[in-house]
Design a protein around this nucleic acid. Structure first.
Length: 421
RNA sequence: GGAGGCGUGGCAGAGCGGUUGAAUGCACUGGUCUUGAAAACCAGCAAGGGUGCAAGCCCUUCGUAGGUUCGAAUCCUACCGCCUCCGCCA
């Protein structure tokens, strides 16, 4: 959520920044609604003040008899007027908040301006691309030949997009998850969390999935709970409605979770194999930091995520998203894309974003700064990493001519296997 | 799922219709004392909004949302959360 104060004080520059992301955004209704609300609030405050004053007078007398009847009649009228205005105020402030929640975050000044993925900037490409001396198979064929994943049975049980991992496929998936968790825990200062996979609407609102993108999540209507699309949602809400101490920052959390996405609107895209599925596994990294540090934290977060791809001997590149390709809540974002030689595609396996105070405002997450002033924290998150596409790239990269898979050495302690055949 | 109890400031814990934004203790911050620290003593210490150069002043908030009343932390209703007991269950 963008600060209403900021919009009020400098509407044109906020609008200008927002247009880099989405040209169709208008702040006019918000400014109008804000000014109406403030007029109303002023009026209401005066009446409340009057009411308090007179009620206290009566209190001092301690006896109803000593007060004139007409005083009570007047006060009753005043009381009713106040109630009406309070109702109006409640409605208006809710309306204003609803509008504000629809406004995306502003891109950081350093973000390249652009409209679509074409304008993204490839900031680092891993050059040591391994050339295979044979025609590489797609992971779809590999998992079938080696009996690692059964898409048909998954579809029979749950529908398309719910892969069923099997035998060494299940082992490999589990190994990847454990490797990623352990690697991050060992090398950085994360606290491991095992979060709930179902969350309340308010939690999804903090991170920005709601109110605009409810259609992308699975919703349990009976209990009004959402299946998480990423562990970012529960992790970011750990400190909802809290004021952290300066000494608490930075706070780093890591969690494995299943991730559930309806992928509404993307039917027909990447339907084959592991590239786009409704349920997948991911290790997520979330940081709560001092605002002055958030951009250096974004750099280190991105490097941390990329290191995992190094460890798995995969080729990847880091992509700096342009303004138009940034997600709703992000100020700046780097994508990690891994090379899949069978698919001959770069696959997005991580998104590392700085949300600045956008999520912190929505979730009311603050800290006491060095001057004892209360301020919003900055939040960041990054996947470290999402498994299905990593698995696809891993199988395609480490396949051999005879059809077997050689397991990268970093993963072998977790699989207990050097190869799968 | 049934019965009961409870939700007050960072924590503990008073208050149960009227100058209560809220006693007291702990924690925290500043000061006195001390070579330094501890102890002791003194002082300060909720958040949000509005207004003002500022000091300040005004409004809101005692789980959440409604209601009763001139006036609610205090009374009523619903919801949420926590605890205890019973039932069911991985």
């Amino acid at each position: 959520m963008i600060s209403i104060q900021k919009i009020r004080d400098d509407k044109s520059s906020v609008a200008k920044e927002l247009s880099k992301k989405d040209k169709s955004i208008s702040l006019d209704n918000i400014v109008k609604s804000d000014s109406e609300l403030r007029d109303l609030t002023k009026k209401l405050n005066d009446l409340q003040s009057e009411q308090n004053k007179q009620s206290k007078e009566i209190g001092k007398l301690k006896s109803k008899k000593s007060a004139d009847k007409s005083v009570f009649e007047d006060l009753k009228k005043l009381s009713n007027t106040i109630k009406e205005l309070e109702n109006e105020q409640r409605t208006k402030s809710q309306q204003l908040r609803d509008m504000l929640l629809q406004i995306p975050n502003m891109p950081h000044k350093s973000v390249p301006i652009g409209e679509s993925p074409i304008d993204n900037v490839i900031s680092k490409e891993c050059s040591s691309k391994k050339e295979l001396k044979f025609k590489p198979k797609s992971h779809v064929d590999i998992v079938k030949d080696l009996d690692l994943i059964d898409f048909e049975i998954g579809a029979k049980i749950s529908g398309t997009g719910f892969p069923l991992y099997k035998g060494n496929g299940a082992l490999l998936e589990r190994a990847l998850i454990n490797f990623m968790i352990d690697y991050n825990l060992k090398n950085y200062d994360y606290t491991e969390i095992f979060p709930p996979f179902l969350v309340k609407p308010g939690s999804a609102n903090t991170t920005g999935q709601l109110p605009k993108f409810g259609e992308d999540m699975y919703h349990i209507e009976k209990d009004d709970l959402y299946l998480i699309p990423t562990a970012e949602v529960p992790l970011t809400n750990i400190h909802k409605d809290e004021i952290l101490n300066l000494s608490d920052l930075p706070k780093y959390y890591l969690a494995y979770s299943g991730c559930f996405r309806r992928e509404a609107g993307s039917y027909g895209k990447d339907t084959r194999g592991l590239l786009r599925v409704h349920q997948f596994n991911k290790v997520e990294l979330v940081k709560f930091v001092h605002p002055k540090d958030s951009y250096s934290e974004l750099e280190s977060l991105t490097k941390q995520a990329a290191k995992i791809l190094d460890m798995l001997d995969l080729d990847y590149r880091i992509v700096e998203l342009c303004s138009g390709d940034l997600s709703f809540a992000a100020s700046k974002c780097y994508d990690l894309e891994v090379w899949a030689p069978g698919e001959k595609k770069w696959l997005e396996v991580s998104s590392c974003s700085n949300f600045e105070d956008f999520q912190a405002r929505r979730g009311n997450i603050k800290f006491r700064d060095e001057n004892n002033k209360i301020n919003y924290v900055h939040t960041l998150n990054g996947s470290g990493l999402a498994t299905p596409r990593v698995l696809a790239a891993l199988l395609e990269t480490h396949q051999t001519k005879d059809g077997s898979i050689s397991i990268p050495s970093s993963l072998q302690p977790y699989t207990g296997l050097a190869e799968i055949k």
